[in-house]
Design a binder for these strands. Sequence first.
DNA 1: CCTTCCCGTGAAATCGCTTTCTCGCAACGA
DNA 2: TCGTTGCGAGAAAGCGATTTCACGGGAAGG
Lengths: 338, 338
Amino acid sequence: MRSRTSARAQITDVAARARVSPATVSRVMNGHASVAADLVERVLSAADELGYRASPVARSLVLGRTQTIAVMVPDMANPSFQEVLRGITRAAAADGYRVLVADSQEDVTQEPGLAREARRHCDALVLCAPRMSDAELAALVPALAPVVLTHRGPTPGVPTSSADYRGGIAALLDHLAGLGHRRLVYLAGPPSSASHRRRLEGIAAHVADHPGLSVDVLPCGVGFEEGYAAGEAVRRSGATAALAFNDLVAMGLLSALHEAGVAVPEEVSVTGFDDIPFARWTTPPLTTAAVPHGDLGQEAWRRLRALLDGEEPPPDVLVHPEVQVRASTGPARAEGAA
Amino acid sequence: MRSRTSARAQITDVAARARVSPATVSRVMNGHASVAADLVERVLSAADELGYRASPVARSLVLGRTQTIAVMVPDMANPSFQEVLRGITRAAAADGYRVLVADSQEDVTQEPGLAREARRHCDALVLCAPRMSDAELAALVPALAPVVLTHRGPTPGVPTSSADYRGGIAALLDHLAGLGHRRLVYLAGPPSSASHRRRLEGIAAHVADHPGLSVDVLPCGVGFEEGYAAGEAVRRSGATAALAFNDLVAMGLLSALHEAGVAVPEEVSVTGFDDIPFARWTTPPLTTAAVPHGDLGQEAWRRLRALLDGEEPPPDVLVHPEVQVRASTGPARAEGAA
DNA sequence: CCTTCCCGTGAAATCGCTTTCTCGCAACGA
DNA sequence: TCGTTGCGAGAAAGCGATTTCACGGGAAGG
């Protein structure tokens, strides 16, 4: 009943078989202290024969750490969150940490609760919370530490790994302006989105600096459908170029434009944001501001690890999106040729 | 040092504050046995004041279960795995289970080790292992139980939640044949892929049943790049329609064809497989065999839950992909008009 | 040759909770 | 009125590891 191989071998089984105490087995298994060579040998072979592996749960209890972190995302189906998740998972795995996923299913109201809950089961948390209000976030963060943020600009007191959305949209604007576009539309993200507000700032600043340039803001959203639905409005706007909140929206818009027989980029140029893997494969391939979400995930992990190790985390990451020029943008059509 | 709010409140703190024993606190918190109403009240308010929540790790140790499952996927970036993961995560969350992700990074050789490792940290496992050999799988499964499989046909002794790839490709073939296509090409997945072999079977059976129909098999792969690279071969093949291993490959092919000036579907029809969300938004929108991966994930969870509850799991799921007819397929061009 | 120090090992405490097991008390029947 | 019965609450025994503490023996030093 005890040394049966039916149940998993325990440390006492190994100890008995190696004729040593559990303490010694523990020491050997963890490479601690110095144990006589022959005992090490005995323990190791006993452990091997029994297929012994220490119970992670028991270790967690006594050690006070689980070697696990959680990542909360609003929607696992969105490639940009998914890439961050993937980046974190791989980086953490390389350091022997596992990751727990928490999907808030786009319901911002239950994100704080979910985050707290997720946090209780592990050692640290990565929060992808682009929509949570600053106030709520500030209230939540202390209860979550150690924690790092992504998909949201720098926040006091919390290591962050994010992109310069403001600079990214400005770069896109430069690109478009360079092609002769003067009347643009921006397909806006959700008003509550922090990164959307950064884009708005970037647009405002750019317009202020460049007389003769106008950017209409069209309420839109974050997905294909919304981009598709905005097709009509974009056409009516008379703009020669449209900047979508993200690549998904851009793809929806591309579809709508194609169906309506509007040539891209000859009649209207379209840009996305994020440079998800799919962006390269649209027709025409999408010009977009590349945000290396995988790297952001990796950087988020570096900061978390520092926090876990009691070290000072590296300074915030703020990657500057680079414009990936592809075929969805081109010279502005002649004025009044709409 | 003890009742300080610095550290998390423990069960003894609550017990002390409510002037009862830890046993009673435990009973109240878990709604066990009958406890006098006034004690319940005292315990509840004490717990509330202290913000007490039982340590999941300690509970796991004594209860012998973690309320966590793991999901192993070959690549989190692939939408079809990602959808399954998402489906499982949501379904499991609804039942109070958390999910741990294990990403094998497409390295089949380390999947067995990774699966075992992941399994040790939780109560059960979902294996998305389309490429692992049957032999390896059979050897691995006993060590992993409870476990359920997805992305792979029914396997003896293991509950499975998968799609009828064979039937799916046949349905696509029917659709194409109905449009007058006689010379087709199949852009093959990796030879080690179980679902690829099912497709091959489906093709062979269909060809045998329909004289005059020919399907060339072109080695290809699973991603955009491979589909793109196959563009040239598809054109040279003289086929009037191409069936891609999955939607990603189809998108790559669509790009290549577009660049080469080949009209889709006028000159060549293209089909995908999976019906990932992006398929609706390609240009032209992709005709594909729809596999409801989210539902598959949910069904995988149902089986796992039954296993966890010591019940008999529901019979294997084998969803029959439905052809989503969109604009990438059309009547075959006239013979010899290539 | 004897004392002291050091080092390797085992016994026991601990992590925070759940769950018997045990005990005391009130209610019930004779 | 006294012995059972039943029920609610606490004491204590785990769950399976790690780690402090104490101890015994061999090497080094006087």
